[in-house]
């Protein structure tokens, strides 16, 4: 026992200060790919997950990158495309709408976000104020593995380790959906889990938050098929999408705080923590 205490004291405090202080990922970290409009851009076939697409416009055509499908493999920034595409280190990518994750690669601004077809901002603002009224600043979540490869699951587990210790932010994972304010879904929603996933979400009292974590759940890599629905929003409306394969723990923390309205969604990360 004494040895355990001594070891614990020697270890000291290992907890991160994120998000109160910014976190900068290591040099090799592959975040949002940054496309420089112009020539020499990779053709859509380069992307193994179909995240890159080509769209006709007045000047011919332009590319769009869908971060909800990107697995951050870095292939589009390799070899002959390294001049046109850079591997960005931005990891705070969570967004309230799937459309916000689509980046149109057009000339005037380096890369602009697509305007959502129907502007859901007023709707989102209303939902958000309701959530803040009911839940305050704290959030209890139930994790739902809807067929993940377990990488996202392990990153959620990491949120409870002494380094991220997400409980310090008033966030915790609970065992029962009846005790939860919302669910965190990982995986593409397999056919074999569809019923269990639907029932578990319905067991969470309203208003409830649904967060899709990782490329499978945001609608990415495996697509729709006999065994998959192809994303969390195929079974229930999603409040926040967190891209990544898997998203690093800080990216998940960022997304959860966005869901709570304690942080603004991507790009304008003014901290109100």
């Amino acid at each position: 026992m004494l040895r355990i205490l001594i070891n614990a004291l020697r270890t000291g405090v290992v907890t991160t200060r994120y998000p109160a202080e910014p976190n900068s990922p290591p040099e090799r970290f592959r975040g949002q790919p940054i496309f420089r409009p112009g020539t020499g851009l990779p053709p859509p076939e380069v992307c193994p997950t179909g995240a890159i697409s080509e769209h006709p416009d007045a000047g011919g055509s332009h590319l769009a990158v869908d971060l909800a499908r990107c697995v951050f493999c870095g292939r589009c920034a390799e070899d002959q495309w390294s001049g046109a595409v850079a591997t960005g280190r931005e990891f705070e990518l969570a967004a309230r709408s799937r459309a916000d994750l689509r980046i149109e690669v057009v000339d005037d601004d380096a890369a602009v976000h697509a305007k959502p077809a129907s502007d859901p901002e007023a709707e989102a603002a209303r939902a958000l104020s309701e959530i803040r009224r009911v839940l305050g600043r704290s959030l209890h979540l139930r994790h739902l593995d809807a067929g993940s490869c377990n990488a996202c699951d392990w990153e959620l587990t990491a949120l409870l380790n002494p380094v991220y210790d997400i409980r310090r932010l008033g966030i915790d994972f609970v065992a029962s959906p009846r005790h939860a304010d919302g669910v965190v879904i990982t995986g593409p929603v397999t056919r074999n889990l569809a019923t269990a996933v639907r029932r578990t979400i319905e067991a969470v009292p309203e208003p409830r938050i649904v967060i899709a974590v990782g490329a499978c759940a945001t609608g990415g890599i495996f697509g729709e098929g006999y065994a998959n629905l192809g994303g969390a929003d195929q079974i229930h409306p999603v409040d926040v999408y967190i891209p990544g394969c898997p998203p690093r723990p800080e990216a998940i923390i960022f997304g959860i705080l966005v869901a709570l309205g304690r942080l603004e969604s991507r790009k304008t990360s003014t901290s109100i923590v």
């Binding site: 067929g147 397999t190 056919r191 889990l193 269990a196 006999y226 065994a227």
Partner: peptide, 20 residues
């Protein structure tokens, strides 16, 4: 429960893409 049909999904793909 986590059967995602991955083996079927890979069929017909370029082996270099299926790697991911």
């Amino acid at each position: 429960y986590t059967h995602r049909g991955l083996e079927k999904r890979m069929e017909g793909l370029s082996p270099l893409d299926a790697f991911y």
